[in-house]
Every structure is written in C-alpha cells, then in structure tokens.
C-alpha cells in the first residue's frame, strides 16, 4: 500500500475507533459491574493489526485512547484505558501470528482478558484497596464473552475489507 494511502486508511480507522468508543460510552452499562463493557473499539485495533500491521495497530490504539479520554472521559479514565489498552495490545501482538484468521476470536478473547486484568490492576493500585480484586472472576467471564464476540466481528470485518479493496 502506498504511503499516503496507508496514512489515510489509518486516519479513517482511528476516526472509526474513536466514534465507536464515544458511542459505546453513551450506552448505559448493561450490568452494574464496574469495568464490564463490550470493548467494541478493540475490533478496530484487531482489524488494523491484520490489514496493516502491529506498529500501525499500536498507533491507531494510542490515538484512540488519548483522544477518547479527551472526548468522552476524564483524566482518571485515561489511566485505566491506557493500562488496559496496552496490555490488550501486547496480548494481541504475542498471539496474533500463532493463530490463523478463523481463530481470531481466541486472540481477541485473550486480549480482552489482558485488558480487564490491566484495568482492574490499575484500579486496585489507584484506590489502594485490594478488596476490589473480588471483581477479577466476573471480569474474566466478561472478558471471554465480549472478547469472543469482538473477535468474530473483527474477523468478518477483515474479510469484508479485503474483498472491498480487491
């Protein structure tokens, strides 16, 4: 892909990820458990990684986290989503080449687990109350469920985008 085309594509992906992130923030939490959310914006991180590469996915993620905190969150949410996002990104980088595209849901579930672990760990440090680690089991459950879901979404999106480009 030519340099300019790639830059435009990355900007587009960032904008889409940001829009998803902001809209998801407006949806009331489906269950009253802190930290449980769909994580739909991670679809874009995965798609970017598969279509463009790891470095590019990292750039899109970084921009989304920073701008997402500016548009939708507060300084405190920036810390949590950065910690979660970074761990999820590392999990994706380490596992994405070990699975084929049809197994993307596995990569995504592992990334979601890493994300929730990072977020909960940061939360426990920030409030200095280890008691909130009681949320670990339910965050593991929600990570697997939402991760599998976003993984399949990312897989279909990658297929559609590949076809569209040809």
């Amino acid at each position: 892909m030519r340099k300019t085309k790639k830059l435009v594509f990355m900007a587009l992906l960032t904008a889409i990820a940001l829009t998803i992130f902001v809209i998801e923030n407006q949806i009331p939490a489906p269950v009253p458990i802190p930290g449980v959310k769909l994580g739909l914006a991670n679809i874009i991180t995965l798609v970017t990684m598969l279509l463009l590469g790891k470095k590019e996915a990292g750039a899109v993620l970084l921009m989304r986290v920073v701008m997402g905190a500016m548009f939708a969150g507060s300084p405190s949410t920036l810390l949590f989503s950065a910690a979660g996002g970074l761990l999820a990104y590392l999990a994706m980088c380490l596992t994405v080449s070990r699975f084929d595209e049809r197994q993307l849901w596995i990569v995504s579930a592992l990334a979601a687990l890493a994300h929730n672990a990072g977020q909960l760990g940061t939360c426990a440090l920030v409030v200095k109350t280890p008691g909130i680690l009681a949320y670990a089991p339910i965050l593991a459950v929600s990570g697997v469920i939402t991760g599998v879901f976003t993984g399949f979404a990312a897989m279909y999106l990658v297929r559609a985008l590949r076809n569209a480009r040809n």
Binding site: A29, P32, I33, P34, S74, S76, T77, F80, C123, V126, V127, T129, G131, I132, A134, Y135
Partner: peptide, 25 residues
C-alpha cells in the same frame, strides 16, 4: 455505576465508585 449497583447486604464484592476512588466493603 455505583448507584446502579444498589444495596450491599453482605458478601465479599464491594461497591466501587471508580472516578471518586470510593469503595464500600
């Protein structure tokens, strides 16, 4: 989220208000 968590009557799962760093255990 902390408001929607409702009443805590027991158990090891705390109410958390993350933005305010408030925890009820």
């Amino acid at each position: 989220i902390c408001v929607h968590q409702g009443q805590l009557t027991g158990g090891g799962i705390p109410i958390v208000c993350m933005p305010h760093r408030l925890v009820i255990q």
